[in-house]
C-alpha cells in the first residue's frame, strides 16, 4: 500500500481513541505518530508494559509488535499468559520474544502459521489497530488483574 494511503487508514483509526478509553483501561499513550502506535498497559498490581505496533504498510500488512519496559528499553523476555499469546521463544525472523496471535506480523510470518492469511482477517473489527491492542490488553490482564 502507498504510504499516503497507509497513513490515512492509520490516522483514521487512532483518532477514534478517546480520552475515556485511556482512562477506563489504564492505558498510557506514548505515540500515535504514523507508523508507530505505542501504548502502555498498567495494572492494579503495579505491573506495567509498553507495546509498540509498527504499522508500516498498514493495513496491507499486520503490525509488527515489540515489548518495552516503562522507560522504553526493549525487553529480552516477557511473561507468559495462560492463552499463550506472549511467546518467549526467539522469533525465527526477529530473534525476539513475540506475539503469537492472529493480527501480529510475527504470527503471520512464523513458519508455523504462514497458512493463516492476514488478507482474510484485516477487515474484521477484531483486527483493527484498536482491536489488536484490545486483544493484547485482555491477554496481559490474564496475568495482571
Amino acid at each position: 500500500m502507498h504510504e499516503t494511503a497507509s497513513r490515512a487508514v492509520f490516522e483514521d483509526e487512532v483518532t477514534k481513541f478517546r480520552p475515556e478509553l485511556f482512562e477506563n483501561r489504564g492505558w498510557t499513550l506514548f505515540s500515535k505518530e504514523y507508523p508507530i502506535l505505542e501504548v502502555g498497559f498498567s495494572a492494579t498490581d503495579s505491573a506495567r508494559l509498553r507495546v509498540r505496533l509498527t504499522c508500516d504498510d498498514w493495513n496491507d500488512r499486520p503490525p509488527s509488535i515489540e515489548f518495552f519496559d516503562w522507560e522504553g528499553r526493549p525487553l529480552a523476555s516477557i511473561e507468559r499468559d495462560p492463552a499463550g499469546v506472549f511467546n518467549n521463544s526467539p522469533h525465527p525472523v526477529t530473534g525476539k520474544p513475540f506475539v503469537c496471535m492472529k493480527g501480529a506480523r510475527e504470527y503471520h510470518t512464523h513458519p508455523s502459521h504462514t497458512a493463516d492469511a492476514w488478507e482474510t482477517l484485516k477487515n474484521n473489527a477484531k483486527f483493527t489497530l484498536g482491536g489488536i491492542l484490545t486483544q493484547l490488553w485482555h491477554a496481559w490482564k490474564q496475568i495482571h488483574k
Partner: peptide, 15 residues
C-alpha cells in the same frame, strides 16, 4: 455504568 466493549484476548498459536 461505563462498559468497556471490545474483542477478548486472542488465542495463542502454539508456535
Amino acid at each position: 455504568v461505563e462498559i468497556d466493549w471490545g474483542p477478548d484476548h486472542g488465542a495463542g498459536g502454539d508456535a
